[in-house]
Design a protein around this nucleic acid. Structure first.
Length: 424
RNA sequence: GGAGAGAUGGCCGAGUAGGCUGAAGGCGCUCGCCUGCUAAGCGAGUAAGCGGCUAAUACCUGCUUCGAGGGUUCGAAUCCCUCUCUCUCCGCCA
């Protein structure tokens, strides 16, 4: 959520920023409503001020044995006026909130302006795609041939976009999760959290999924509860409605959760394999930091995510997303894209964003620098550290052998009970 | 699912014949004093949001907030209704 006072003070600048995201009109109506709100507020407060003092006056007179009937009658009438104005005020504030909740974050000045991913900028690459002496298979073929991925039975259980992992496949998924968590907690200083996988609508609004992206999520029948689309939601919302005390920041959190996404509007994309599922596993990184450090923290967080790919020996590149490709809550985002031989291109496996105070404002996450100082909004960051299903796909494809077997990356072997090769 | 109890400031905890209680007291915290260190002691301060005024997120000032939302009343933390959550007991259950 943007700062209403900032919009009021610099409407043209904010509009320009929004134009970079192709929605210059998002602010329309705001300034008028904002003015209307303050005008009504001024009136009500004046009336309430009168009511407060008049009521005390009544109390005083009654104590003296008088019966101030005219004054009581006057205050009663004022009360009616207040009620009317309060309703108007509430209606106006609701309109303002609707506008504000639907405006995305403003892009950071370092973000390239563009309509879509074509304007993304490659920042760096790591590793060289392997040269195969044979025609490499796609992970869905490798997995099915080895009988470690089962898409047919997954469809029987749950429909399309689900996968059943079996034997070494299931173990590999679990190994990757544990490897990531151990690395981030042990080496990178994150605190491990195991959150609920269902959260309230308030949480979803706090991180920006609601109200605009309800169709992308699974909502529980008859409940104001949603399956988490990413652990970013429960992790960031851990501190919703809190004032974090002096010396507590920065907070680094990591969690494994399954992620549930309706994938509305992506029919026909990535229909084969585990790349785009209704349920997938992910280890997420979340940081809550002071505003001064947040961009430095974004670089560090991105490096933390990259580290797992390096240790797994998976070639990747880092992309700086353009204004047209960024998510709703982000001010700046780096995507990590891993090399997938079957796609013959790099595919997103992590997204690391600085949301600045956008989510903090929605979720009311504040901190106090020192005792007695005014609380201010923290900055929140999040990044995949990284997507587990896509990691497994990348391992299968990048580590496949001519005979159909798959070599286990060395760092995972301790998590695989020493297994170094998956073969039929 | 059934029965009961409760939700007050950073924490604990007063506050029901409705009125100067934004809220006693304690703890914690901040600043100062004092004791040659430490402990103890003394004094003062210590909620947030939204407006007005401002260069100001400094003063000053208004309004709101005692789980949430409605109602009664000149006036509600205190009375009434609805909801949410927490705790205890019973039932069910991994």
């Amino acid at each position: 959520m943007l700062d209403a006072r900032q919009i009021r003070a610099y409407p043209e600048e904010v509009k320009e920023q929004l134009a970079k995201r192709g929605i210059a009109g998002a602010l329309d109506g705001f300034l008028g409503l904002d003015e209307e709100r303050r005008q009504i507020l001024g009136q009500v407060e004046e009336l309430k001020s009168f009511r407060n003092s008049a009521s005390q006056e009544v109390g005083r007179k009654k104590k003296e044995g008088q019966e101030p009937t005219e004054l009581m009658e006057k205050v009663r009438q004022i009360g009616q006026e207040i009620k009317v104005l309060d309703d108007q005020l509430k209606a106006t504030e609701a309109k303002i909130e609707t506008i504000l909740l639907n405006i995305p974050n403003l892009p950071h000045s370092s973000v390239p302006v563009g309509e879509d991913e074509a304007s993304n900028v490659e920042i760096r690459r790591w590793g060289d795609p392997r040269q195969f002496g044979f025609e490499p298979l796609a992970h869905w073929d490798i997995g099915v041939n080895l009988d470690i991925l089962d898409f047919e039975r997954a469809a029987k259980l749950s429909g399309t976009r689900f996968t059943v992992y079996k034997s070494a496949g299931a173990r590999l998924e679990r190994a990757v999760i544990n490897f990531y968590l151990d690395l981030h907690t042990g080496e990178h200083g994150y605190r491990e959290i195991l959150p609920p996988f269902m959260v309230s609508a308030d949480c979803m609004q706090g991180t920006g999924q609601l109200p605009k992206f309800a169709e992308d999520m699974f909502k529980l029948e008859g409940k104001e509860m949603y399956l988490v689309p990413t652990a970013e939601v429960p992790l960031t919302n851990l501190y919703r409605e809190e004032i974090i005390g002096p010396g507590q920041l920065p907070i680094y959190l990591t969690a494994y959760t399954p992620c549930f996404r309706a994938e509305a509007g992506s029919h026909g994309r990535d229909t084969r394999g585990v790349i785009r599922q209704h349920q997938f596993n992910k280890v997420e990184l979340v940081k809550i930091v002071e505003p001064e450090n947040s961009y430095e923290e974004l670089e560090k967080l991105t490096r933390d995510a990259e580290k797992v790919l390096q240790l797994l020996g998976l070639p990747y590149r880092v992309m700086l997303l353009s204004t047209g490709d960024m998510g709703f809550s982000a001010a700046k985002t780096y995507d990590l894209e891993v090399w997938l031989p079957s796609y013959k291109e790099y595919k997103e496996i992590s997204s690391c964003s600085n949301c600045e105070d956008f989510q903090a404002r929605r979720a009311n996450i504040r901190y106090r620098l020192a005792p007695k100082t005014k609380p201010q909004f923290a900055h929140t960051l999040n990044g995949s550290g990284v997507a587990v299903g896509r990691t497994v796909a990348a391992i299968l494809e990048n580590y496949q052998q001519a005979d159909g077997s798959v070599v286990i990356p060395e760092v995972l072997r301790p998590y695989m009970g020493g297994l170094d090769l998956i073969k039929a």
